[in-house]
Design a protein around this nucleic acid. Structure first.
Lengths: 170, 170
DNA sequence: GCATGCATGTAATCCGTTACATGATTTA
DNA sequence: TAAATCATGTAACGGATTACATGCATGC
């Protein structure tokens, strides 16, 4: 039920069309919450019905610019501070790791090696991104972005090191 | 589509009923892949139709004990080694962190403080579990369990430290 | 005899993905 | 004028959750 909160969050920096939002999901936000085009358009319509957003302007090609309403803003803040985040309950990587003893040792090693490589690669990409972001001038808006990026850096390093370690255990 | 793989994995250690499997999801496996009772029973029926499992025995109260078949075992091994795990695409905690600049600083700090506490608590619980597991005699079956547990320890420590760090940034 | 636990299932609903379908506008 | 991009939507399907519904067996 959090797609709408992702949308509300994006709309706090100004009105946007479904198409605009889609691009933002594809670039930055998608690492943290993803959505397909279909789902996004459907959700926007529902949110407008419920008064969380409104069509602020219409443009060429049937473009509809949505803006967050007061109700929408309230719903977002409520969700951020009052709703307990639910822990992650599905991780396909760990599920595989859980049954790793079932495959031949060399396959298990290959799996972990591959995971370590992927994590290392992701870590490098995020490091480069962090360098770019570090050059921007600081403001509250991108402090949040940096905090999330820092999480990405730490999590990918942890995953990489764990996969390295696990490989040696086998 | 991985509930079935979780089920197949559990059935490699012997036949079990839906009820038995449910208990295992609730205790250990649920941290890594969760399922509701409805979903589990439905999936077992489908898997039996597809020949991945079979009813090996029936007991009192309509109890049906399912056993993994050769096809099921093949499907599991295929999934483990040949199917590329998909990266996680939804994290409600990071989604909140991404928009943290929208709430008042003291609320943001409280949020991160709370997250750090939860992670610390989880880390402690896992540490205790790790001590218990360390006493068991080593065998391939629980090596996988230890590897997953180690991941839990590292990930919760990372998350705790990150939340501590982020709190100081605000 | 009653509470607890064992045991399975169905129905409604929602969330998410894939695929399909359409058309306007801009730019080279 | 053709290609790329902008722009929105619908339909079918599968996965997941919630709620409901039922009943047997065991132990106190």
């Amino acid at each position: 039920m959090s797609l709408r909160h992702a949308v509300l969050g994006l709309l706090t920096s100004g009105p946007a069309s479904g198409y605009d939002l889609m691009k933002r999901f594809e670039s930055s936000l998608g690492y943290v919450w993803s959505a397909t085009q279909s789902q996004l358009y459907g959700e926007l319509t529902k949110m407008a019905d419920e008064g969380l957003v409104e069509v602020a302007a219409e443009g060429p090609r049937g473009r509809k610019e949505y803006a967050i309403t007061e109700d929408g803003r309230a719903a977002l803040l409520h969700w951020m501070t009052e709703v307990e985040p639910e822990p992650l309950r599905r991780n396909g990587l760990l599920l595989r790791a859980f049954f790793l003893h079932l495959v031949e040792p060399d396959k298990a090693v290959a799996f972990l090696r591959h995971q370590a490589d992927l994590a290392a690669q992701q870590h490098e990409e995020l490091s480069k991104l962090a360098e770019l972001v570090a050059e921007e001038e600081p403001c509250p808006e991108n402090t949040s972005g940096r905090i999330v990026l820092e999480y990405g850096l730490r999590a990918s390093a942890t995953y990489r090191d764990w996969a390295d370690w696990a490989e040696k255990q086998i």
